[in-house]
Design a protein around this nucleic acid. Structure first.
Length: 510
RNA sequence: GACCCAUUAGCUCAGUAGGCAGAGCACUUGACUUUUAAUCAAGGUGUCCGGCGUUCGAAUCGCCGAUGGGUCACCA
């Protein structure tokens, strides 16, 4: 908007905080006082919200790290007031910028009487820009002796207590902005998250993988067993699903000849929430033509250990009190061996679905009435094995029944060339030699369809276009998916997925 | 979805046997020109998550509900 001749802007702008909106009379004392301060600033033509820019030439960290060379130099910095210690005609306060905190020394002689009186009214939480000289106090704290100070934004809400910070988990998730202001370790976690994602991208980019973007809005959700979110497009008048996995699109690109592709992005699954599950989460999937699942094992180790190195400086980490050694190579064990080891049952000796179900019944393992051999094997794996896989372990050769998109082992068609990565008893990745036989893929889809008709809402739907793509010929291909949120949890020692999501899904407050 | 736990001042938390609702920080006023959880003096905090009930009397006991957390189930 362009307004000419705005000689008296008070004609256009209500100078006071909107009383009707804030219902000032009903505000608590602590909130009312700050609004009154703002109104007074406006009356004195010092409305901080009219400031548009502040020239900053240093930061708290820069000053602290380079004190020797910067002592006595003038700097211009800005940040949020986090504490104040007033002593009459001189004061100390700490401001916080993106790098941390630094102490300011504000003296009436330096800033002048009017500015000093204004400063005394500034609140913890206000944002200021200051200029002054770098020095060290008697007690040895690196500080800035201020001679110019400007209020850049007024904080109308009091910050949480300086000592305990914000502890209320619900408030921390709902008002992450406050959490970030007062809990430094939260900021640290999200900086690490960003580094991990950068590291994964860099690792793949350096190896010639092409980052691509495939649709989030899918006519047919595929690539995983999960219930999707449904939405509607008005112009096309069709329901669309939010993607549950990018797999089928990425494999179309392999058919198209891109050969080495990956996508790192948000997935959506309309399922339960827990410390490990959020309805939207981030996953990386990578596909490489002419490679197999063994290649994907090496790739997975490389991606994860490189991220660990970049974020923690090593490959030995501690997660929730447990020492984890990510140094490759990781343990590798077949699912059959693992079940034999931890459950004491050799599924190689069990022939047929019926016998498998009988063994499950004996052990009190719940399986579907018509569960197949492979499904029973998987049930045993989940019940007996997973929790034991604390150190990084690659479990491979999964049964075909639970792997509808995976190539069979040439010598054992009831098994597939698939593996999952387990660390601290949790799944971190899933990979396989991709099924590229369109005839077999159609059979697998039909099998999934039968499960769907039997009431399994998570079973795959038939994706005819994907089958069509396979019919053009997809080279032998290795694919790998890594749950990024879980990786971030592992490398930041976070207990809950909500601690690595800036804005976790919450029920709206009424 | 089931079960368990939590909800008290802006924040962090006490609270009782069912009997006037508390502390620290923050805030207000005053003192203080090198403090750092600054200090000193004085001062006001409130839908005790909501509703219903029991009771002379409920923050406290009961029931229903809300939100969050945890465990389990499903999943990555």
């Amino acid at each position: 908007m362009v307004v000419d001749d705005m000689t008296d802007e008070n004609t256009f702008v209500n100078n006071d905080v909107n009383i009707a909106e804030t219902d000032e009379n009903n505000l608590r004392e602590i909130l009312r006082v700050r609004r009154e301060k703002l109104n007074e600033l406006k009356r004195n033509n010092k409305d901080p919200f009219k400031e548009v820019k502040y020239e900053v030439n240093s930061s708290s960290l820069q000053i602290k790290e380079n004190f020797e060379s910067m002592e006595g130099q003038r700097v211009s910095i800005a940040g949020r007031i986090m504490s104040k210690r007033e002593m009459g005609k001189a004061s100390f306060c700490d401001i916080q910028d993106r790098d941390g905190r630094i102490q300011l020394y504000v003296r009436i002689n330096e800033v002048g009487e009017e500015a000093y009186e204004d400063f005394r009214k500034y609140d913890i939480g206000d944002i200021i820009g200051v200029e002054g000289e770098v020095f060290k106090t008697k007690k040895g704290e690196i500080s800035v002796k201020i001679d110019k100070i400007k209020l850049l934004a007024k904080s109308l809400q009091p910050l949480p207590e300086k000592w305990h910070g914000l502890r209320d988990v619900e408030l921390r998730y709902r008002q992450r902005y406050v959490d970030l202001i007062v809990n430094p370790e939260v900021k640290e976690t999200f900086i690490k998250r960003s580094k991990i994602i950068k590291s994964v991208r860099k690792y793949l980019d350096n190896r010639g993988f092409l980052e691509v973007e495939t649709p989030l809005l899918n006519p047919i959700p595929g690539g995983a067993n999960a219930r999707p979110f449904i939405t509607h497009h008005n112009t096309l008048d069709i329901d669309l699903y939010l993607r549950i996995a990018p797999e089928l699109y990425l494999k179309r690109l392999i058919v198209g000849g891109l050969e080495k592709v990956y996508e790192l992005g948000r997935m959506f699954r309309n399922e339960g929430m827990s410390i490990k599950h959020n309805p939207e989460f981030t996953m990386m999937e990578v596909y490489q033509a002419y490679a197999d699942y063994k290649d994907m094992m090496d790739l997975a180790e490389g991606i994860i250990t490189t991220a660990a190195m970049e974020v923690t400086g090593g490959t030995k980490i501690v997660y929730q009190g447990e020492e984890i050694d990510l140094t490759p190579p990781w343990n590798r064990i077949t699912m059959l061996e693992a079940v034999k080891k931890y459950a004491g049952i050799d599924f190689d000796q069990i022939t047929g679905d019926e016998e498998a179900r009988r063994v499950a019944k004996e052990r009190g393992i719940q399986v579907e009435e018509n569960a197949k051999w492979g499904e029973v094997l998987n049930a045993f794996f989940e019940e007996y094995v997973e929790d034991n896989l604390v150190q990084p372990t690659i479990v491979y050769d999964y049964p075909v029944e639970i792997s509808p998109l995976t190539k069979r082992k040439p010598d054992r068609p009831e098994l597939t060339e698939r593996f999952e990565i387990f660390i601290v008893g949790r799944e971190f990745g899933n990979a396989y030699s991709e099924l590229n036989d369109p005839i077999d893929q159609r059979e697998r889809f039909l099998d999934q369809m039968r499960k769907r008709e039997a009431g399994d809402e998570e079973a795959n739907m038939i994706d005819e276009d994907f089958l069509n793509a396979l019919e053009y010929g997809m080279p032998p291909t290795g694919g790998l998916g890594i749950g990024i949120d879980r990786l971030v949890m592992l490398l930041t020692d976070s207990y809950s997925i909500r601690d690595v999501l800036l804005f976790p899904t919450m029920r709206p407050r009424t």
